[in-house]
Design a protein around this nucleic acid. Structure first.
Lengths: 225, 225
DNA sequence: TGCAGCCAAATTGTCGACAAAATAGCATTT
DNA sequence: AAATGCTATTTTGTCGACAATTTGGCTGCA
């Protein structure tokens, strides 16, 4: 028996499209979201747009004021810092839980993934870089087997962080060092060492967060001058 | 000049009312939420109900399937466990950040609060217990000065945890020991010791989580027999 | 009896219209 | 000229109706 694909409503599609446009910067940060304007642009009724905006609000990608309207959130160094703090905490916990809950098979797959990425990265320096990093974190979060954790990270934090990365052009170098960090984390998980796995993951995210912070202040200084 | 109160829309009120009814169990767990039924019950249009349900979904209090409808989430031991794992992680981080970001005045206030609660608890054993505990955690999360953290905890996790507590009747005793734990956490924050504050907070939540877990399994065993 | 397909009822998804509120511009006053 | 108050316009909030989809039950057939 084939699993029937879940039907996607118009509101779903509009939400996903809108989210994409906001994250990728086609709808710029801090800009106002007019319901009528968007409903003509995306060719759906205002009700659909309203539902999409509501969902975007609960992702914290837009902010709404009653009777006034919705704006895309504005990007601030403070905001990015806060995001990374939450991410560090949650993914640290994810690594801790993964060290307990991941199956041996999942761990083997994760190792294989790392090898593949390593080869690809050596060949085409930074093409696979972001995708590889994402894959890695994605699997560990899945490995935590904690639905709340997954929901908060995948539906919320990750889109926000990506928004910062795309719009402030923060392609962290750090390729080879990040790779060693990834490998150490997998080893900790394979050794069923939750404390170490958490600690390594938290450090790993702290480092990448710091890099982004620096890029951000550098870039905003540039754009001011 | 007086700060104007933010206008509250019908959808806001309905959302808050619905959330209350779900958390307090007046709308039982796992029950279906019919839009027409609710719109007659709360005397608002279906559009308002839909918006409220959408927001409840992003709080993870209800689950929706396209073209089928929304159900209140079901309460499972696994679900409670996952919630406490996330809570431990996030509030641990909150305590860590509070140790850095809370002002001296806020710390003094927190100390005063603890004293007040201690007296009240001694007088009327468990009346102030829950409110006191809530107050304490609330202030530390505020003290983190991290908007993401606050939003995830206040808007999401806390209502869900309360739902479990109310509906599965988990009034943890643990009054005096919890008090000592609270005091130690405040001391760590006052000493500007982030690592210790985080560790103590995480333990504190682990303990209370364990108590609730036990109550839960006990109660569900009871209700089965 | 069991099962497949179909039909009817109920439920959700979408839409356009109206009501209420906020905003912007203009006139008036000091 | 600046500030205040009013009015017109725009924008959001709410509603009821229609369309699309699912669900439950019925009929007919093997």
């Amino acid at each position: 028996m084939v699993q029937a694909v879940q039907p996607i409503t118009s509101a779903d599609k509009t939400f996903i499209q809108l989210r994409r446009d906001i994250v990728e910067g086609e709808i710029p940060a801090s800009s106002k979201l007019s319901e009528v304007e968007l409903s003509t642009k995306y060719e759906v009724s205002r009700a659909v747009i309203r539902e999409a905006i509501n969902r975007l609000e609960s992702c914290r990608l837009v902010e709404r004021k009653p009777n006034v309207g919705a704006r895309v959130v504005s990007l601030t160094p403070q905001g990015l810092k806060e995001l990374y703090q939450v991410r560090e905490s949650l993914e640290g916990m994810a690594a801790r839980l993964a060290a307990v809950n991941m199956s041996e098979e999942e761990i083997d797959d994760l190792r294989a993934l790392l090898d593949t990425h390593f080869k690809n990265v050596k060949e085409a320096e930074n093409y696979y870089q972001e995708a590889g990093d994402l894959d890695f974190h994605y699997r560990i979060i899945l490995g935590s087997k904690n639905a709340q954790l997954m929901s908060i990270l995948f539906d919320g934090i990750y889109h926000l962080i990506r928004m910062y990365r795309v719009q402030l052009g923060m392609a962290g170098p750090r390729i080879t060092t990040a790779f060693d960090e990834h490998r150490n984390i997998v080893n900790a998980i394979a050794n069923r060492d939750p404390e170490l796995a958490e600690m390594l993951m938290r450090r790993h995210i702290q480092y990448s967060g710091n890099v982004h912070q620096e890029n951000l202040t550098k870039n905003s200084a540039k754009s001011i001058s």
